[in-house]
Simulated scan of single mutants.
Amino acid sequence: MKSTTRGTLAAVIAGAAAAVGTAATPAAAVGTVPVPVPLEGVSGALGTEVPKAGLEIPVLTPGVPDGPRYVTGRLVPDRTLPQTPLNGALPGAVLDAPLPQVLGDRFDHVGIDAPASDLRTLGPGLNLDAPLTAPDPDNFGLPALKQPEISLLAPVVQTVADANLGAGAGK
């Protein structure tokens, strides 16, 4: 293969990789996959306007759990069952529906735009402690008894949802 052919092939592959990378960036940045709802064929078949719709499906990505922490004075580490983070997005939707006017052949439109918004969660976790203390040198190195401890770490959900509802003249 000639060097010019190899150079051209490398340029084409680099351009295709850049195009695929830029096309995937918006979906990966928000954590959603856009899903268009094709209704244009229905509009042509019926000879009238039909609603337009588009959806955004979230892609959840698990994070790295915050592992157990060793605390002095406890036999079992803190956060025995660590909370697992999940990052993603709330589903988004864009809907635009025609409203026929009473007098005339035109349409008004009503629409809702609910973009996908970031979602951060932490699953529940668990803390345990054994019913024994650490070895006590004043008690010949034997542990003492104590009340067992158990606590549940509550799940966390954090997001800011946003939506716009609008109505207006036909398009």
Rank of each mutant, 00 (worst) to 15 (best):
A97E: 02
A116I: 03
V37W: 00
P51C: 02
D66I: 08
T80K: 11
G41K: 14
D129K: 02
E40R: 15
P58C: 05
V30Q: 12
P137H: 10
L152Q: 04
R6A: 14
N127P: 05
V33N: 14
P115K: 07
A16R: 14
A18V: 12
V33D: 12
E149G: 01
A161T: 02
P115W: 01
P131N: 07
P135S: 13
A24S: 07
V12M: 07
P148L: 07
P135C: 12
G31A: 00
G104S: 08
V59K: 10
E149D: 09
L122A: 13
T5D: 15
A19T: 09
D113Y: 01
A114N: 05
T8S: 12
L103M: 08
L122K: 11
G67R: 09
P137W: 07
R69I: 09
T80L: 15
R120C: 00
D96E: 12
P135E: 12
G104E: 02
E40N: 13
P38R: 13
E49N: 08
P148M: 07
A23V: 06
I150T: 13
L132G: 10
A27M: 06
A11M: 05
L132C: 07
T121W: 08
L165M: 05
D108W: 07
P62M: 09
F140A: 15
V20H: 05
A10E: 00
A89F: 01
T133S: 15
P26I: 00
L165F: 13
L95W: 13
G88W: 09
P85N: 09
Q101C: 05
G54I: 03
V76Y: 11
L122P: 09
T32A: 02
A11S: 11
D96K: 12
A23L: 10
L126R: 14
L90F: 06
L46F: 14
P68V: 04
L60I: 04
L81S: 06
V42E: 02
A53W: 00
D138H: 13
A161V: 05
R74F: 10
P62E: 08
A24K: 02
P62G: 14
A114G: 10
P38M: 11
G63R: 15
Y70R: 15
G166C: 02
P124I: 00
V42C: 00
D105N: 11
I57V: 11
T5F: 11
L95I: 06
G141W: 01
E56T: 03
A29D: 05
V94F: 07
S117A: 13
D66R: 15
R6Y: 13
P148Y: 03
P58M: 08
A11C: 08
D162M: 11
G15F: 01
V37L: 11
T8N: 12
L81P: 00
V37S: 12
A53T: 00
A167K: 08
T8I: 14
R79N: 08
P100C: 05
P143I: 09
V156P: 03
